[in-house]
Design a protein around this nucleic acid. Sequence first.
DNA 1: TTGGTTTTGGTCATGTCAACAATAACCTCA
DNA 2: TGAGGTTATTGTTGACATGACCAAAACCAA
Lengths: 253, 253
Amino acid sequence: MKRTTSSGEVPTGYDPLQFPAFAVTVDVVILTVSDGALHLLLVRRGESPFEGMWAIPGGFKRPTETLDEAARRELREETGVDVASLLVQFGAFGDPQRDPRMNVVTIGYLAVIRDVGAIVAGSDAADAALIPVSEVLDGKLELAFDHRRIVCDAIERVRVELAVSGIATAFVGTTFTLAELRGVYEGLWGVQLDAANFRRRVVNKDGWVIPTGRRARPGLAGGRPAELFRVGRAWNHSGLTHPQRNHQEREVE
Amino acid sequence: MKRTTSSGEVPTGYDPLQFPAFAVTVDVVILTVSDGALHLLLVRRGESPFEGMWAIPGGFKRPTETLDEAARRELREETGVDVASLLVQFGAFGDPQRDPRMNVVTIGYLAVIRDVGAIVAGSDAADAALIPVSEVLDGKLELAFDHRRIVCDAIERVRVELAVSGIATAFVGTTFTLAELRGVYEGLWGVQLDAANFRRRVVNKDGWVIPTGRRARPGLAGGRPAELFRVGRAWNHSGLTHPQRNHQEREVE
DNA sequence: TTGGTTTTGGTCATGTCAACAATAACCTCA
DNA sequence: TGAGGTTATTGTTGACATGACCAAAACCAA
């Protein structure tokens, strides 16, 4: 049995070129909620291969920076925002044929930003757009490289993270109404949540949301003005779970 | 604002060496539960740097294989087992100085195997050992490279995964008693669980465990023989949660 | 047979949560 | 100004989950 260690059977005098060399890139899936639906930021490729197709923004990792720094740099170059509400690594992708030109391993990052409308407009709007993720998941919109799979993994991660931690607050502004926050859950899970029960669950969560005294102005349709909240610091412990039917059938098929 | 896409500003006629080249490795954190405590498989490094120190097994990704294949290959080379109960990627590590020799980006994999005792014995036992993770977390045992951080991330992932999915069954054999399964939770969470309540929670979970008719032989101390279960297929939906005190104080500090 | 040990089943009180009803506070339009 | 519409919030209720605790069952060793 061959024994190898983390960096392999490297003799003391090594030659870097003797080992398989890869290009390492960082790709950032930038998400936001708009009109109650999850959207992601895509850019149109200007070069071959996949010229003219939509892709998620990304670029080479530089030898002097960490992966996190590379992701933050890419996000800044793409959107101009310096810090996202959330920027976490969610996976690495290294299939041999994922880039037809050379061997590229990419590290996927997930970024959540609050209101990206103005940001995309300020950017080079010609080749960047906010696309509903449903179009990607449906397969209606084809993406370059293996970016469809990368996006799918990112979405899945968001859904899980939403249940296990308080990611939802990353999608809303610094102050928000509970209806807005509820919309994030409904959009990402594709469910309808009871407003009354949602309120109780969220407000009772220890340090989850903090009421500011103020109230939001009602929408065009009127209605009682909603209370304004800001995020508490404890949005990282036990998240919300999917609502489960009261009368779930307990049959073991 | 500079616009880059996933593979950067690569002209059509590209020269691979013109872009930052990295070595890509796959490191596998191999976990098992032994004597009610979580252990991990470490190998002793035979070469510089960090010669003689403990490290997690790993090696170079080959250009023709996927990351998952590389992880499976490393696991097989190290333990001889062909397929783990669980083998998932959990993170990428690419700090510039993590390897003093060259720029190495490593992809961390988490492997869970059932009974590793015989396996390690069958391997080249001189430089491989099962170490309690507590010794690594305490800092009592120093690891090569940034492997301590990699291990910490893996453990954290296991703890979360344990609550959100049914990872626990990956630690036990194909048939198991509820005491064994409970021991996994107790070992990983560092808590004591009531046997009666644990049984109800696990058995009531839809498709979680399936009773085989057989019973285990009692231990040396006697006791009623335990029922033997096997894992159901639905161990991926809503996991168990930490037990929470009945009278939790609800103060907002 | 007796005492020890482990598993399994039962009870009870409390807490959580979904469903639903009712009220409060705003809007627009007549 | 008032009526009807809309949204947010509070209340109530019943089903279920869960933790604490107790008791019985089924084995061992002596």
